Amino acid sequence: MRKALLVAAALVATPALAQANPQIDYPAFQTLTASVAPQRATRLLKFDAFKAEAAKPGTLLLDARSKDAFAAGHIAGAVNLPLTDFTAESLAAVIGANPDRPILIYCNNNFRNDAVPVRMKAAPLALNIQTFINLVGYGYPNVWELADVIDMGDPAVGWVKG
C-alpha cells in the first residue's frame, strides 16, 4: 500500500511527465472543452427539430459510433465515421469542402433501449460529448446534437436494422 502511495505521489509531483509526448496536449484539450461548452449548450435539438433539420438538403447526419454498432442499426440517412477514425482527412472526406455544413449528431445515450446496438454509456462519457468537441476542434462549428432520449422502436425515429 505504501509503495502504491509513493508511486502515485511521484506521478502527481512530476507534471513534466504528463506532457512528455508532444503529440498529446491535455491543457489544450481542457481549453477547447471549456470553449465548446457554451456553444454546445445552445446546440441541443428536440427530436422533432432534429428530424426536420436532418431532412434539409446539405445537412449531414453523422453517427460516430463503431462500425459494428452502426451496421447493427442506425437512424435512416445517417453516415458513419467512428470517433476513433476522426482525422482532418477522414472528416473532410465525409463532411465535404464546406466547414460550415450543418452536422447533426446522436449517440447511444439518446436511446432509452439500452440494448444492442445502443448500449448506454456512463453519462459523463457519452459519445455526443467527445464527438461535439472533436468536430469543433477540427474546425466544424455548425454541430447540432439530439437532446432527447428516444426509443429506437418508435417508427418516427426511422431506425434501420442491420
Rank of each mutant, 00 (worst) to 15 (best):
V36I: 09
G139F: 12
G158S: 09
M152Q: 03
A18Q: 12
L5Q: 11
A76S: 14
N134M: 11
D48W: 09
N80F: 07
P27K: 05
A156K: 15
A71W: 05
D85R: 09
T14W: 13
A52F: 10
P27C: 09
P38F: 11
A123M: 09
N109Q: 01
N108M: 02
P102W: 03
T42V: 12
I129S: 05
I75G: 01
V136D: 08
P38N: 10
A92P: 00
A16I: 10
Q23G: 13
A49C: 05
A13L: 15
I75T: 05
A88V: 10
E89W: 03
G137A: 12
I103H: 00
A72D: 06
N128M: 01
A8T: 05
A10V: 10
A34H: 08
D85E: 15
P38H: 09
Y138Q: 12
N134C: 12
N21E: 14
P57S: 08
P27Y: 13
N142I: 07
T42R: 15
D25T: 04
S90Y: 01
T84H: 11
A69T: 09
A156I: 02
Q23P: 00
T84E: 11
G96T: 06
A28C: 00
S90W: 00
V94W: 03
I75V: 10
T42Y: 03
V94G: 02
A13R: 07
D68W: 12
Q30F: 06
N21D: 15
I105R: 02
N80V: 10
Q39H: 04
G58H: 06
R119L: 14
P57Q: 05
N98Q: 11
T31N: 04
K3L: 06
Q19F: 13
L45I: 09
A92Y: 04
D68M: 14
G96W: 14
T14D: 10
N98M: 08
A4F: 12
A4I: 06
W159S: 04
T87G: 05
V116Y: 07
A122K: 14
T31Q: 13
V7Q: 13
L104W: 02
V160W: 08
L60S: 05
N109S: 06
D63A: 07
Y26M: 04
V157G: 04
R112G: 12
G162A: 09
D151N: 11
G153R: 07
A54F: 03
L17Y: 09
V12E: 09
A78G: 06
S66I: 13
Q23S: 06
A13I: 07
A18Y: 08
E89H: 02
A28Y: 03
G139V: 09
A55S: 15
R112I: 13
L61T: 05
V157I: 04
F86N: 07
R101T: 06
G96V: 08
A115H: 06
D100R: 15
T31M: 04
Q39T: 15
Q39W: 04
E89R: 00
